[in-house]
Computed example of a mutant assay.
Amino acid sequence: MFLESKKAHLAVIIGCVFYSMNGLFISHIHDMDISPVIFYRLFFGILFLFIYIISRGKTPDLRLKKRRGSLFLQGVLVVMCMLLYFTCLKTTCVSIAILLQYTAPVYVMLVSPFLLKEKIRKESIAALFIAITGVFLMVRPEDGLSGIELTGSYMIGIIAGLLSGIVFAALILNVKVLKTEYPELAIVFWPMGIALLLLSPSAFDVSRDVLYSNLTVLAVFGIVSIGFGEIFTILGFANLKAQTGSLLALIEPVSGVFLDIAVLGIALSPETLAGCALIMVSALIISLKGPEDISEKTGERVFI
Protein backbone atom coordinates (compact mmCIF):
# COMPACT_ATOMS: atom_id res chain seq x y z
CA MET A 1 0.00 0.00 0.00
CA PHE A 2 2.89 2.36 0.70
CA LEU A 3 4.25 2.02 -2.83
CA GLU A 4 0.72 2.37 -4.22
CA SER A 5 0.35 5.74 -2.49
CA LYS A 6 3.78 6.85 -3.72
CA LYS A 7 3.35 6.18 -7.44
CA ALA A 8 3.66 9.85 -8.33
CA HIS A 9 6.82 10.19 -6.23
CA LEU A 10 8.34 7.15 -7.93
CA ALA A 11 7.36 8.49 -11.36
CA VAL A 12 9.32 11.71 -10.81
CA ILE A 13 12.32 9.78 -9.50
CA ILE A 14 12.29 7.33 -12.44
CA GLY A 15 11.91 10.21 -14.91
CA CYS A 16 14.86 12.03 -13.33
CA VAL A 17 16.99 8.88 -13.63
CA PHE A 18 16.24 8.79 -17.37
CA TYR A 19 17.03 12.52 -17.67
CA SER A 20 20.30 12.09 -15.80
CA MET A 21 21.61 9.98 -18.70
CA ASN A 22 21.90 13.12 -20.85
CA GLY A 23 25.60 13.46 -20.20
CA LEU A 24 26.28 9.87 -21.23
CA PHE A 25 24.57 10.36 -24.58
CA ILE A 26 26.12 13.76 -25.26
CA SER A 27 29.58 12.28 -24.67
CA HIS A 28 28.94 9.88 -27.57
CA ILE A 29 27.73 12.56 -30.02
CA HIS A 30 30.50 14.04 -32.13
CA ASP A 31 30.94 17.14 -34.31
CA MET A 32 27.46 18.57 -33.55
CA ASP A 33 26.57 21.86 -31.87
CA ILE A 34 24.15 21.70 -28.98
CA SER A 35 21.19 23.25 -30.87
CA PRO A 36 20.84 20.47 -33.50
CA VAL A 37 21.45 17.87 -30.78
CA ILE A 38 18.50 19.28 -28.83
CA PHE A 39 16.36 19.39 -31.97
CA TYR A 40 16.96 15.76 -32.97
CA ARG A 41 16.60 14.65 -29.37
CA LEU A 42 13.16 16.24 -29.40
CA PHE A 43 12.35 14.83 -32.86
CA PHE A 44 13.03 11.20 -31.97
CA GLY A 45 11.45 11.57 -28.55
CA ILE A 46 8.21 12.96 -29.96
CA LEU A 47 8.16 10.32 -32.72
CA PHE A 48 8.44 7.59 -30.08
CA LEU A 49 5.78 9.28 -27.98
CA PHE A 50 3.38 9.55 -30.92
CA ILE A 51 3.83 5.85 -31.76
CA TYR A 52 3.19 5.00 -28.10
CA ILE A 53 0.01 7.11 -28.02
CA ILE A 54 -1.36 5.49 -31.19
CA SER A 55 -0.50 1.95 -30.05
CA ARG A 56 -2.27 2.53 -26.73
CA GLY A 57 -5.33 4.06 -28.38
CA LYS A 58 -4.77 7.30 -26.49
CA THR A 59 -5.17 9.73 -29.40
CA PRO A 60 -8.35 11.23 -27.83
CA ASP A 61 -6.08 12.47 -25.01
CA LEU A 62 -4.46 14.84 -27.50
CA ARG A 63 -7.70 16.70 -28.23
CA LEU A 64 -7.16 20.42 -27.72
CA LYS A 65 -9.41 22.06 -25.14
CA LYS A 66 -9.14 25.27 -23.18
CA ARG A 67 -5.88 26.73 -21.91
CA ARG A 68 -4.21 26.43 -25.32
CA GLY A 69 -2.19 29.47 -24.40
CA SER A 70 -0.79 27.58 -21.41
CA LEU A 71 0.15 24.69 -23.69
CA PHE A 72 2.01 27.07 -26.00
CA LEU A 73 3.64 28.73 -23.00
CA GLN A 74 4.86 25.34 -21.81
CA GLY A 75 6.56 24.75 -25.16
CA VAL A 76 8.21 28.18 -25.02
CA LEU A 77 9.36 27.52 -21.45
CA VAL A 78 10.91 24.21 -22.53
CA VAL A 79 13.00 25.96 -25.18
CA MET A 80 13.94 28.84 -22.86
CA CYS A 81 15.03 26.47 -20.09
CA MET A 82 17.27 24.50 -22.46
CA LEU A 83 18.87 27.56 -24.03
CA LEU A 84 19.42 29.37 -20.73
CA TYR A 85 20.92 26.30 -19.09
CA PHE A 86 23.34 25.63 -21.93
CA THR A 87 24.28 29.33 -22.10
CA CYS A 88 25.21 29.17 -18.44
CA LEU A 89 27.03 25.88 -19.00
CA LYS A 90 29.05 27.33 -21.88
CA THR A 91 30.07 30.59 -20.19
CA THR A 92 30.60 29.37 -16.59
CA CYS A 93 30.96 25.67 -15.70
CA VAL A 94 28.91 22.54 -15.07
CA SER A 95 28.87 23.10 -11.30
CA ILE A 96 27.49 26.63 -11.50
CA ALA A 97 24.93 25.68 -14.17
CA ILE A 98 23.52 22.81 -12.10
CA LEU A 99 23.59 24.80 -8.87
CA LEU A 100 21.68 27.73 -10.37
CA GLN A 101 19.10 25.68 -12.29
CA TYR A 102 18.25 23.66 -9.23
CA THR A 103 17.33 26.73 -7.24
CA ALA A 104 13.91 26.08 -8.82
CA PRO A 105 12.41 24.51 -5.64
CA VAL A 106 13.00 27.81 -3.83
CA TYR A 107 10.92 29.73 -6.37
CA VAL A 108 8.23 27.05 -6.43
CA MET A 109 7.89 27.12 -2.66
CA LEU A 110 7.65 30.91 -2.64
CA VAL A 111 5.07 31.16 -5.45
CA SER A 112 2.91 28.03 -5.13
CA PRO A 113 0.93 29.28 -2.07
CA PHE A 114 -0.26 32.27 -4.15
CA LEU A 115 -0.74 30.68 -7.59
CA LEU A 116 -1.82 27.17 -6.59
CA LYS A 117 -3.09 27.75 -3.04
CA GLU A 118 -0.67 25.13 -1.71
CA LYS A 119 0.26 25.22 1.95
CA ILE A 120 3.92 25.30 2.89
CA ARG A 121 4.59 22.48 5.34
CA LYS A 122 7.45 22.46 7.80
CA GLU A 123 8.65 19.18 6.28
CA SER A 124 8.93 20.88 2.88
CA ILE A 125 10.93 23.78 4.34
CA ALA A 126 13.31 21.40 6.10
CA ALA A 127 13.67 19.28 2.98
CA LEU A 128 14.36 22.39 0.88
CA PHE A 129 17.23 23.59 3.07
CA ILE A 130 18.74 20.09 3.23
CA ALA A 131 18.43 19.65 -0.54
CA ILE A 132 19.94 23.03 -1.47
CA THR A 133 22.84 22.37 0.91
CA GLY A 134 23.28 18.99 -0.74
CA VAL A 135 23.28 20.48 -4.24
CA PHE A 136 25.92 23.02 -3.23
CA LEU A 137 28.16 20.38 -1.67
CA MET A 138 27.72 18.08 -4.65
CA VAL A 139 28.56 20.53 -7.44
CA ARG A 140 30.41 23.41 -5.77
CA PRO A 141 33.37 24.78 -7.73
CA GLU A 142 36.80 23.55 -6.57
CA ASP A 143 37.72 27.07 -5.44
CA GLY A 144 34.36 27.64 -3.77
CA LEU A 145 32.40 30.73 -4.72
CA SER A 146 35.42 33.00 -4.44
CA GLY A 147 36.38 32.21 -8.01
CA ILE A 148 33.23 33.70 -9.46
CA GLU A 149 33.86 36.89 -11.40
CA LEU A 150 30.71 38.92 -11.83
CA THR A 151 31.95 40.64 -14.97
CA GLY A 152 31.69 40.21 -18.73
CA SER A 153 30.49 36.94 -20.24
CA TYR A 154 30.71 35.20 -16.86
CA MET A 155 28.07 37.58 -15.52
CA ILE A 156 25.86 36.76 -18.52
CA GLY A 157 26.27 33.08 -17.70
CA ILE A 158 25.32 33.64 -14.05
CA ILE A 159 22.20 35.56 -15.08
CA ALA A 160 21.30 32.84 -17.60
CA GLY A 161 21.70 30.21 -14.88
CA LEU A 162 19.47 32.09 -12.45
CA LEU A 163 16.86 32.56 -15.17
CA SER A 164 17.02 28.85 -16.04
CA GLY A 165 16.08 28.08 -12.43
CA ILE A 166 13.15 30.50 -12.59
CA VAL A 167 11.98 29.05 -15.92
CA PHE A 168 12.33 25.49 -14.57
CA ALA A 169 10.11 26.50 -11.65
CA ALA A 170 7.60 28.02 -14.09
CA LEU A 171 7.54 24.74 -16.03
CA ILE A 172 6.59 22.81 -12.89
CA LEU A 173 3.94 25.34 -11.87
CA ASN A 174 2.43 25.43 -15.37
CA VAL A 175 2.07 21.63 -15.38
CA LYS A 176 -0.26 22.01 -12.40
CA VAL A 177 -2.30 24.61 -14.30
CA LEU A 178 -2.54 22.38 -17.39
CA LYS A 179 -3.54 19.34 -15.31
CA THR A 180 -6.92 20.97 -14.63
CA GLU A 181 -7.75 20.70 -18.34
CA TYR A 182 -5.53 18.08 -20.01
CA PRO A 183 -4.38 14.49 -19.37
CA GLU A 184 -0.69 13.90 -18.83
CA LEU A 185 0.05 12.66 -22.37
CA ALA A 186 -1.23 15.90 -23.87
CA ILE A 187 0.86 17.90 -21.39
CA VAL A 188 3.92 16.01 -22.65
CA PHE A 189 3.14 15.88 -26.38
CA TRP A 190 1.98 19.38 -27.32
CA PRO A 191 4.67 21.44 -25.53
CA MET A 192 7.38 19.15 -26.89
CA GLY A 193 5.90 19.56 -30.38
CA ILE A 194 5.90 23.34 -29.99
CA ALA A 195 9.50 23.26 -28.78
CA LEU A 196 10.43 21.14 -31.81
CA LEU A 197 8.90 23.71 -34.18
CA LEU A 198 10.66 26.58 -32.45
CA LEU A 199 13.99 24.80 -32.76
CA SER A 200 13.41 23.53 -36.32
CA PRO A 201 15.95 25.94 -37.91
CA SER A 202 18.63 24.05 -35.96
CA ALA A 203 17.90 20.92 -38.03
CA PHE A 204 19.93 22.41 -40.89
CA ASP A 205 22.94 23.37 -38.78
CA VAL A 206 24.58 19.98 -39.26
CA SER A 207 25.86 18.22 -42.37
CA ARG A 208 24.21 15.04 -43.63
CA ASP A 209 27.29 12.91 -43.02
CA VAL A 210 27.67 14.08 -39.43
CA LEU A 211 23.97 13.54 -38.81
CA TYR A 212 24.07 9.99 -40.17
CA SER A 213 27.12 9.13 -38.08
CA ASN A 214 25.29 10.21 -34.90
CA LEU A 215 21.81 9.04 -35.87
CA THR A 216 21.65 5.92 -33.69
CA VAL A 217 22.82 7.73 -30.57
CA LEU A 218 20.43 10.64 -31.22
CA ALA A 219 17.49 8.25 -31.67
CA VAL A 220 18.17 6.41 -28.42
CA PHE A 221 18.85 9.74 -26.69
CA GLY A 222 15.44 11.07 -27.71
CA ILE A 223 13.58 7.89 -26.74
CA VAL A 224 15.22 7.68 -23.32
CA SER A 225 15.21 11.34 -22.25
CA ILE A 226 12.08 12.65 -23.97
CA GLY A 227 10.12 9.45 -24.48
CA PHE A 228 10.58 7.86 -21.06
CA GLY A 229 12.00 10.74 -19.02
CA GLU A 230 9.34 13.26 -19.96
CA ILE A 231 6.43 10.82 -19.59
CA PHE A 232 7.42 9.76 -16.09
CA THR A 233 8.27 13.24 -14.80
CA ILE A 234 5.07 14.83 -16.11
CA LEU A 235 3.01 11.96 -14.66
CA GLY A 236 4.62 12.70 -11.33
CA PHE A 237 4.52 16.51 -11.47
CA ALA A 238 0.86 16.52 -12.51
CA ASN A 239 -0.16 14.42 -9.52
CA LEU A 240 2.00 15.94 -6.80
CA LYS A 241 2.07 19.31 -5.16
CA ALA A 242 4.40 21.60 -7.06
CA GLN A 243 6.64 21.94 -3.99
CA THR A 244 7.06 18.18 -3.68
CA GLY A 245 7.68 17.65 -7.40
CA SER A 246 10.33 20.37 -7.58
CA LEU A 247 12.22 18.92 -4.61
CA LEU A 248 12.10 15.38 -6.00
CA ALA A 249 13.53 16.70 -9.29
CA LEU A 250 16.81 17.18 -7.40
CA ILE A 251 17.26 13.42 -7.74
CA GLU A 252 18.42 14.08 -11.34
CA PRO A 253 21.91 15.41 -10.52
CA VAL A 254 22.32 12.72 -7.86
CA SER A 255 21.48 10.01 -10.37
CA GLY A 256 23.91 11.60 -12.82
CA VAL A 257 26.68 11.38 -10.23
CA PHE A 258 26.08 7.67 -9.63
CA LEU A 259 25.97 7.03 -13.38
CA ASP A 260 29.37 8.71 -13.62
CA ILE A 261 30.64 6.28 -10.99
CA ALA A 262 29.09 3.17 -12.52
CA VAL A 263 29.65 3.85 -16.22
CA LEU A 264 32.56 6.27 -16.48
CA GLY A 265 34.44 5.20 -13.35
CA ILE A 266 34.84 8.78 -12.13
CA ALA A 267 36.20 9.14 -8.59
CA LEU A 268 34.16 11.46 -6.40
CA SER A 269 35.12 13.62 -3.44
CA PRO A 270 33.66 13.10 0.05
CA GLU A 271 31.86 16.45 -0.31
CA THR A 272 30.09 15.28 -3.47
CA LEU A 273 28.97 12.05 -1.82
CA ALA A 274 27.80 13.99 1.25
CA GLY A 275 25.78 16.29 -1.00
CA CYS A 276 24.17 13.31 -2.71
CA ALA A 277 23.28 11.85 0.69
CA LEU A 278 21.64 15.11 1.81
CA ILE A 279 19.52 15.29 -1.35
CA MET A 280 18.42 11.68 -0.83
CA VAL A 281 17.50 12.53 2.78
CA SER A 282 15.40 15.49 1.60
CA ALA A 283 13.60 13.26 -0.91
CA LEU A 284 12.95 10.73 1.85
CA ILE A 285 11.53 13.42 4.14
CA ILE A 286 8.94 14.64 1.65
CA SER A 287 8.10 11.11 0.51
CA LEU A 288 7.40 9.87 4.05
CA LYS A 289 5.27 12.83 5.15
CA GLY A 290 2.07 11.11 4.00
CA PRO A 291 0.00 10.84 0.82
CA GLU A 292 -0.28 13.87 -1.39
CA ASP A 293 -3.60 15.61 -0.90
CA ILE A 294 -3.87 17.50 -4.17
CA SER A 295 -7.18 15.81 -4.84
CA GLU A 296 -8.84 17.10 -1.68
CA LYS A 297 -10.29 20.20 -3.34
CA THR A 298 -10.68 18.95 -6.88
CA GLY A 299 -11.75 15.36 -6.45
CA GLU A 300 -9.11 14.21 -8.94
CA ARG A 301 -7.44 10.85 -8.75
CA VAL A 302 -3.95 11.14 -7.28
CA PHE A 303 -2.39 9.11 -10.12
CA ILE A 304 -3.46 7.80 -13.49
Rank of each mutant, 00 (worst) to 15 (best):
G152F: 03
I172M: 14
V302C: 02
F114M: 03
I285A: 02
I46R: 05
G227N: 05
K179V: 04
L137Q: 02
M109D: 00
T103H: 03
L137S: 01
S213G: 13
G144N: 01
A195W: 00
E300D: 13
V206G: 04
H30M: 04
E230R: 07
E184M: 07
T298G: 12
I279K: 05
W190T: 07
P141D: 08
I194R: 14
T244P: 09
S255P: 01
L173C: 10
S225V: 15
S255T: 03
I29D: 01
V263R: 10
F18A: 14
L218H: 06
L47A: 14
S27I: 03
M192S: 14
L73C: 05
Y212D: 13
P291D: 03
I54M: 10
I46K: 04
L235T: 05
F204C: 03
A169H: 08
S207C: 02
V217K: 07
F86C: 09
L24G: 11
A283E: 07
E230K: 09
K90L: 10
E300G: 00
L268H: 15
F228Y: 10
I234R: 09
G147S: 06
E271P: 00
L42Q: 08
F39M: 12
D260M: 07
I223Y: 06
I231P: 07
L196R: 13
A127R: 11
L268C: 10
G161Y: 03
G147T: 08
V37Q: 15
L250F: 03
F25Y: 08
F204E: 01
F129I: 15
L99C: 02
A219P: 13
M82Q: 14
D61T: 09
L116Q: 07
A219C: 15
K65F: 04
V167E: 06
W190G: 03
T298E: 10
R68I: 14
L235G: 02
F189G: 12
S112C: 04
L10G: 01
S269L: 13
G161R: 04
